[in-house]
Write a protein that binds this DNA or RNA. Structure first.
Lengths: 245, 245
DNA sequence: ACCTGAACACCGTTCAAGT
DNA sequence: ACCTGAACACCGTTCAAGT
C-alpha cells in the first residue's frame, strides 16, 4: 500500500507521463487483482483484464511477477492472510477519521509498533481469531488460493508466535501447544469456508426434507448467525483446548 | 460407480463398438476427472484432456453436463463430499477382500443399509468426522472446488441429520445444536485445509527465525503429526461443545 | 529497468452435422 | 440420444523490440 501511494505520487508530480514506467508495483498489482476478484470473482481475473484495469499492457505484469500467474496467486494469498497488515491499515484509517472526530475509543495501545501486549492470553487468542476471520472474509473470493502451500512469510510466523506464546502462557507444553495452535487455525479457516459456502441463502434446505431427517426438519427455521456462531464456537474450542477450561 | 461399471459391461458384451455411445455417464466423467485432478492437479483438468482420457471428443462431455465446466465442478464437489458413498464403496472393497480373507474385523453392522445406529452420540460424531476428513484428503486436489455454494444434496442433509441428532442426544437444544454442528464441520474442513497447506515440509520454518519469535524457535523441532493432532483437537472441541464435557 | 506488440499453443463453448 | 468436427473468442506465456 505504501509503495502504491508513493508510485502514484511520483507519477503525477515528478515524472513526465511517458509510455514506460506506468507506476506498477507488486503491491499495486495485488490490490488491483483483489479488486477484480472481489468484484467479478476469481475466475474472471486474467492477466489481460488485470492489465486493462491498470491501463497497461497485460505483459507488463510479468516484469513484477516473472513466474507468471502462479506467483501472483501466491502473493495474493500472502497479502490476504497477512492479518497484521490488514489490522494496521484499518487502524490508520480509524486514526485518520479520529483526527476529525476528536475522541478515540479510549485506546491505550495506539500506534506503538510491536509494543508488549499486556492483554491476557485468552484475549490475545480471541482477537487474533476475530482479526484473521475478518481478513479472510474481506476477500473471500480469494479463498481457493490459500489452499496451496503455506507461505513461510514473516506474517505467518508472527501469527504462529502469538498462538504459541499464548497457549504456553495458558499452561500447555510442547506437542500440546503445536496441536492447539493447529486446531485453532483450522477452526477459524474452516468457519470462513463454511460461511462462504452457505452463501446468502437463509433457510438452508428448501426441499428434500422427508421423514428420514426429523431433527433437521425440526430445526429447519433455526437461523444461523455466522458471527455469533463463530464467536460461540471459538469460546467452546478454547475451553476445550486449555487444561483448566 | 455403479453406472460406470454397467456402462462398460454394456459396451464390451452387448453393443457393437460404434462411434457414438462411447459409454459416457456423469459418474464415469466425474471419476475420470478426479483421476486427472489427483494425478496432475486441478489446473490441468481441461475439457480436452478429460475427453482424451476417456478416448472421446472433448465436446461429448457437454452432453452430460450441458452447463459446462462449472456444472462439472459442482458435481465433483458433491461427489467428493459424499461421505456415505465413500464409506459404502470402502466397505464393499473390504467385503470383497474379506471373502478371500475369511475373518472380518468382528464387524456387527456389516451391510445393513440405514440400519439404526446403536453407537453413542459421541462415537457417531467421531466417526463422521474421521470419515469426512478421509474423504476430503483422498481428493485434496479438489478442495478449492468445495468453497463454492454448498450442495443441497441428500448426502449433505444426511450428514446434517447425523450431527443434529447426535448433539440433540448430547443435551443441546435449538440454536446450540445448529452452532455446534457448524463448529464441528468448520473444524474438520479447516483441519484438512491446514494439513494440505502444510504440504510435505517437515520443519515448517527453514529460516526467518530471529529473536522476535522465541516460542516458535523453542518449538521448532516439535513435529506435527496431522492425524494425531486432528484426533486430539476433535476430542477437545467435542469436550467444549457439550455441557457436561 | 520497465513496458509494448506480435506471436504461439491452448482453452471453454457454440453450432451444425452425423448416426 | 449421443457423439463428432470445425469454428470463435479468449487465455497464459515467450520473445524481440522499444525507450
Amino acid at each position: 500500500m505504501r509503495s502504491h501511494g508513493a508510485a502514484l505520487l511520483g507519477r503525477s508530480k515528478v515524472a513526465p507521463v511517458s509510455r514506460n514506467n506506468a507506476g506498477l508495483s507488486t503491491d499495486r498489482i495485488i490490490v488491483e487483482a483483489l479488486r477484480i476478484i472481489d468484484g467479478q470473482g476469481l475466475r474472471r481475473l486474467t492477466m489481460r483484464r488485470l492489465g486493462d484495469a491498470m491501463e497497461v499492457e497485460a505483459m507488463a505484469v510479468y516484469h513484477h511477477f516473472p513466474l507468471g500467474k502462479e506467483q501472483l496467486f501466491e502473493a495474493i494469498a500472502e497479502y490476504v492472510t497477512d492479518v497484521h497488515r490488514a489490522r494496521t491499515a484499518e487502524e490508520e484509517a480509524d486514526a485518520a477519521l479520529g483526527e476529525e472526530d476528536g475522541a478515540g475509543q479510549g485506546g491505550a495501545d495506539t500506534g506503538a509498533e510491536d509494543a508488549a501486549d499486556e492483554r491476557t492470553w485468552d484475549e490475545r487468542l480471541r482477537s487474533w481469531a476475530q482479526d484473521y476471520r475478518a481478513a479472510l472474509l474481506k476477500h473471500s473470493g480469494a479463498l481457493p488460493l490459500l489452499i496451496n502451500r503455506r507461505p513461510d512469510t514473516e506474517a505467518a510466523v508472527r501469527s504462529l508466535e502469538l498462538q504459541y506464546a499464548a497457549f504456553s502462557e495458558a499452561g500447555l507444553e510442547g506437542q500440546d501447544v503445536v496441536n492447539a495452535a493447529a486446531a485453532l487455525e483450522s477452526y477459524v479457516t474452516g468457519a470462513v469456508v463454511h460461511e462462504v459456502r452457505a452463501g446468502g441463502l437463509e433457510s438452508p434446505h428448501p426441499a428434500r426434507l422427508d421423514g428420514r431427517f426429523p431433527t433437521v426438519t425440526g430445526l429447519r427455521h433455526t437461523a444461523l448467525d455466522h458471527e455469533q456462531a463463530f464467536t460461540e464456537g471459538l469460546e467452546r474450542l478454547l475451553k476445550g483446548l486449555v487444561p483448566g477450561g
